[in-house]
Structures are given as structure tokens and as C-alpha cells.
Amino acid sequence: MSDIKTLIVDGLWTKNPALIQLLGICPLLAITTTLVNGLALGIATTVVLICTNSIVSLIRHTLLPSVRILIFVMIISSLVTTIDLLTNAFFHELHGVLGLFIPLIITNCTILAQAESVASRNSIGKSIISGGSAGLGFTAVLLVLGGFREIIGRGSLFSGIDMILGDSATDSFIKFPFDGALVAILPPGAFFGLAILIALRNLFIPTATIEQRLETNISESHG
């Protein structure tokens, strides 16, 4: 039981892919111009993570070590293609916004890292929990960064929610009484935002601790 709890806490916080492992930074920075965009990419990534982990975990005993990465990428790409087509079919507008970044989930290092370090060594249950929590952790960061940038950059929150909930929700976003500073939506804003989030994380887990932990991990795995 405690094992599962650690897995969940790891994914959400102590080994959070975006804030601690700093993986998948590219989509993280590019997509989080609004909260809804972040949410959509987060959900897509989480789904891919869970599916990949479960499939990899199922076939882990038949994997040849020499071609494992190749197989991981093939599994991930077929899943992503599926999701790409599904979003295009059901959330066409959203697909237009997320555009290139859905296919790019393939190259999101979080997924490959999960497949390699968790799914190929653990049972399907554990793999799904780990993948799910990592995906949720990633999504959480996307939400926070997206929300932050949207509020500062546009003076709104949940704009574009209709792309997920349908036309009935067109006006159901929050508009603040200012226009916002465009820079937050532009690339510099993404870097500043992520830097501020990491700085805040540093208050709880200093980078030095993380580096230390990494070192012990390396020496353990070597030992």
C-alpha cells in the first residue's frame, strides 16, 4: 500500500517530471499560453503515458534489450497518432490550437523515461499508477503555468474552454479588468514563468538536494 502511495507522491511531487526532472520542457513552454491549452495537452500526455506504460509493462518479458527503445517509440507513436486523430475528430478547434504539439508528444522525454525506468521493470498495476501520477503531475504544472501566463498575458482565465466543453460554454470564461502584458504569452513569458515555478519549488526542495539525490541514485544503480 505504502508502495503505491510513494509512486503517486513521486509522480505528483518528489519526482515531478516538469518541475524536478525538467523533462518535456518543449511542449510545456510552447503550449501553456492559456490554461485550457495546458489542460488539453496535459490530458493527452497523461492518456499516452498510461497506455504506453500498460502496454510496455505487458510485453516487458518478451522485450529484447537491444531494440527496446525502438519498440517504446513505436508504441508511443501509434498511441499518439490515435490520440491525434481522435482530437481532430472530436475537438477540431482544439486540435487546430495544439497543432504540432500533439504529434510531438512522441518526443516527450517523460514518456520514454517512464517506459524505460518504470514500465519495463514493474507489474502492470504499478506501471499504470506511476504513469498516471506522472501524467497528472505534468498536467498540474501545465495548468499552473498556463493559468499564470493567461492571467498576466491576457487578463482572462479559462478562455477557449468552449473548445473542450462545446459551444454552450463560449462565454463561460473569467475576464479580469485589465488587458494583460503580452510578454507573458510570448516565449519570454514562458521561460520567466517556468523559472519562477522552479524558484518556488526550490523553497521546498532545494536544487542541491535534487542533485545529491541524483548522485546517490547513480551510485546506487552502479553499485
Binding site: G180, A181, L182, V183, A184, L186, P188
Partner: peptide, 8 residues
């Protein structure tokens, strides 16, 4: 630069 990018 921040002003120019944010409030053109």
C-alpha cells in the same frame, strides 16, 4: 523590451 512586447 518587456513594455514593447507587452503593450505595443
Amino acid at each position: 523590451a518587456i513594455l514593447l512586447l507587452s503593450f505595443p
